[in-house]
């Protein structure tokens, strides 16, 4: 296991790179969902005000 984590001595670069890359993937997904949720709430509020 420690050999796998060490990645022939490059672990200190490889794991942060994967953490950053997939961290950004998560951020892109969460921010897209949050944008849709805000847009739905705004649209619902507008409809309630109209009716």
């Amino acid at each position: 296991m420690s050999e796998f984590l060490s990645m022939s001595g490059y672990g200190k670069y490889l794991w942060p790179a994967f953490g950053l890359g997939f961290g950004i993937v998560v951020v892109i997904y969460v921010s897209a969902l949050s944008s849709l949720s805000r847009a739905r709430q705004d649209a619902k509020r507008r409809l309630e005000m109209q009716s």
Partner: peptide, 20 residues
């Protein structure tokens, strides 16, 4: 595929804002 996913989500948000 991931780009397709998030584009479709953001597109729905964008359409809701524009077509309010």
């Amino acid at each position: 595929l991931f780009f397709g996913t998030v584009l479709l989500i953001r597109l729905r948000a964008e359409l809701l804002r524009r077509e309010r």
